[in-house]
């Protein structure tokens, strides 16, 4: 492989595509967090909490739907381009976050909740002071999973003309250009690992503050 050509690919297209990729991930992940956390909390409140376990099971199953299918399924309705890509990515990113919000809150020790209620804390206060802080590690883990998945799924946006690093990989495969494949793959992988690590750091920082 020609290292010179690899660097050239990164310089000419890679940086711009990375920016595009980050934008796809950033926007869809932000919307997903903004939607999934309130929805997840809502599901654990009455009257919905009766079905929270079933909803959790459904979300787990839905996670089995392949990313390629999610990206493809909106094509007939929404066509191609940036907006359908963002839509598909957001939907896919919602699942792990919502699942972990529900699982995290449901996982809080019932004795702790009873103690909190017994001390006269209101439901709202129990949520903000007890349930959410205790569920936070699980919720952040969900965001982490979701972010890594979204970085990967965003490579598929290329297939519906949504841009991103997928372009380098897919054109590399079809044109038999290993330099393209390697450049695209390594940059995507690096991006995913980086985001994973950053969220991991944020996680540690937050949990250190809470436990300290």
């Amino acid at each position: 492989m020609n290292w010179h050509r690899l660097i050239e690919v990164v310089r000419l297209e890679g940086l711009q595509l990375t920016a595009q990729h980050l934008e796809l991930v950033g926007i869809s992940l932000s919307i997903a967090i903004a939607v999934a956390i309130p929805v997840g909390i809502l599901v654990t409140r009455p009257p919905f909490n009766k079905w929270s376990l079933q909803i959790l099971a459904f979300l787990n199953t839905a996670q089995g739907v392949p990313s390629l299918a999610v990206v493809a399924i909106f094509l007939p309705i929404m066509g191609i381009g940036r907006v359908p890509s963002l839509f598909a990515l957001t939907i896919y990113a919602l699942l792990p976050i919502a699942r972990n919000v529900i699982a995290g809150i449901e996982g809080v020790d019932p004795d702790v909740l009873e103690a909190a209620r017994g001390m006269g804390m209101s439901r709202g206060r129990v949520l903000t002071r007890i349930e959410l802080p205790l569920a936070l590690p699980v919720i952040i883990a969900g965001v982490q999973t979701s972010a890594v998945l979204t970085v990967g799924t965003a490579t598929l946006a290329h297939l519906i003309a949504g841009g991103g690093l997928g372009r380098l990989i897919f054109s590399g495969i079809s044109m038999h250009r290993p330099d393209y494949i390697i450049a695209g793959s390594l940059m995507t992988a690096a991006l995913a690992i980086l985001i994973d690590q950053v969220i991991g750091l944020i996680h540690r920082w937050i949990s250190a503050r809470y436990s300290g």
Binding site: G152, T155, I169, P178, I181, I182, G184, S185, A192
Partner: peptide, 23 residues
């Protein structure tokens, strides 16, 4: 866990460029 965070398209991409594996 590092491998887990490599996107699947990227992992396939990296593997096919390895001599002996390919498509």
């Amino acid at each position: 866990s590092l491998i887990m965070s490599v996107p699947s398209v990227a992992l396939y991409g990296i593997l096919v460029t390895i001599p002996g594996l390919g498509l």
